[in-house]
């Protein structure tokens, strides 16, 4: 049962990496979109593409936390004690990001929009880095039960590399999705704009992964071995295949499947990491079985999860379908009957 819950946790992390990651990536490109004039079109697209789905995308994170503390309370305690600072900063980043994005839209003054936009974009970079650094610290065995917070837990080679990989992967996902969104919204000039960026981001992922291979060999030995043999290796290869397929499709300008292949590559990578870490939740000090909460609770967690899938699944499908069909559009000023107030300059 604990094993099963551990896989649910990996799945939830994968879902957050894909759904949340796409949002972070959009924020990344918002940051690099340039000045107010040059960045107007990409930012417009980012705003429109993200708005209906970003809240749902980010709820995955709450679900990850809940499974952690309900299913593996000792692991939750250990991670949050050892990784205090990066997690605290990630939380602050989440606040600034969400607030920046939500407040930018109804603002009609350029100066204020810039501030909110900067808040949103910079924290879109910082938050995945810290979350990635936490994963890196866990994978390299720096978190044990009773470890107190230290800089080394997250400011080490593996953590930094995983953090950077997280940023690169989100940028890749974001660009691929924005590419399809540009097509959907009929903004054809932006299709190529994001296509190039998706390819660059994929290049960055590959480069970082190649650097990570020798660097993490000794630092995160257990996970390194897990990723280079057996099921872990198989999933990594599949992830690489999906990633390359995305690149090929992008190069051939056939955007119908790119979203699925890019999501698959990220999800498979997370899955490979989960595989490589078996049977540990904290390599190499705490196993899934040792960390597991009460058996009765785990059973109920499965039941609650099953009910939730039945309830949330269809709703999520409806949301994504309506969104991709272009049925979801935000209320405009004419819908709510608003006019310009003094000082508005947009």
């Amino acid at each position: 049962m604990a094993e099963f819950i551990a896989w649910v946790l990996v799945l939830a992390i994968a879902a957050y990496a894909c759904a949340g990651g796409t949002d972070y990536g959009a924020g990344f490109w918002d940051l690099l979109a340039g000045g107010a004039d040059r960045g107007k079109r990409p930012r417009w697209l980012i705003d429109h593409a993200m708005a209906p789905v970003w809240e749902a995308n980010n709820v995955w994170l709450i679900f990850v936390l809940v499974i952690m503390w309900t299913g593996f309370p000792t692991m939750f305690q250990a991670v949050f004690s050892a990784m205090w600072l990066p997690l605290a900063l990630a939380a602050v980043g989440l606040v600034l990001r969400g607030a920046g994005f939500a407040l930018r839209k109804p603002t009609r003054r350029l100066a204020q929009r810039r501030i909110y936009g900067a808040m949103f974009a910079i924290s879109s970079l910082v938050t995945p880095f810290f979350l990635g650094a936490v994963l890196g610290g866990i994978a390299s065995g720096r978190v044990k039960v009773g470890t107190t917070a230290s800089t080394d837990a997250w400011a080490n080679a593996t953590s930094v590399l995983v953090g950077l990989l997280a940023i690169a992967a989100t940028a890749f996902l974001g660009a691929v999705f924005l590419c399809s969104d540009a097509l959907r919204f009929g903004a054809h000039d932006l299709v190529d704009y994001f296509r190039v960026r998706a390819l660059i981001a994929f290049g960055a992922v590959v480069v970082l992964a190649l650097i990570a291979l020798p660097v993490t060999h000794d630092d995160a030995r257990y996970v390194w071995d897990g990723l280079t043999e057996g099921l872990g290796l198989l999933l990594i290869i599949l992830a690489a295949v999906c990633g390359l397929a995305t690149v090929l499709l992008l190069l051939r300008r056939s955007h119908g499947w790119t979203r699925y292949t890019s999501v698959a590559s990220v999800a498979l990578t997370v899955g490979a990491w989960g595989c490589a870490q078996r049977p540990y939740v904290l390599p190499t000090s705490l196993t899934v079985a040792e960390a597991a909460g009460a058996a009765h609770t785990l059973r109920w967690l499965v039941i609650v999860t099953a009910i939730a899938i039945v309830l949330v699944g269809p709703a999520l499908v409806v949301l994504y379908r309506l969104d991709t069909m272009g049925e979801l559009e935000e209320l405009t000023d004419s819908d709510t009957g608003a006019v310009r107030a003094t000082g508005d300059n947009l």
Binding site: A56, V59, I62, V66, I67, T297, A315, L319, E327, D335
Partner: peptide, 26 residues
């Protein structure tokens, strides 16, 4: 912790439904 599990899913559902509602007007 299981209460939070119920909450997380309910909240998820709420986030999805509210998105559909807010962006479905047009």
């Amino acid at each position: 912790g299981l209460g939070f599990g119920v909450e997380a899913w309910a909240f998820f559902l709420e986030a999805v439904l509210i998105a559909i509602y807010l962006y479905g007007w047009r």
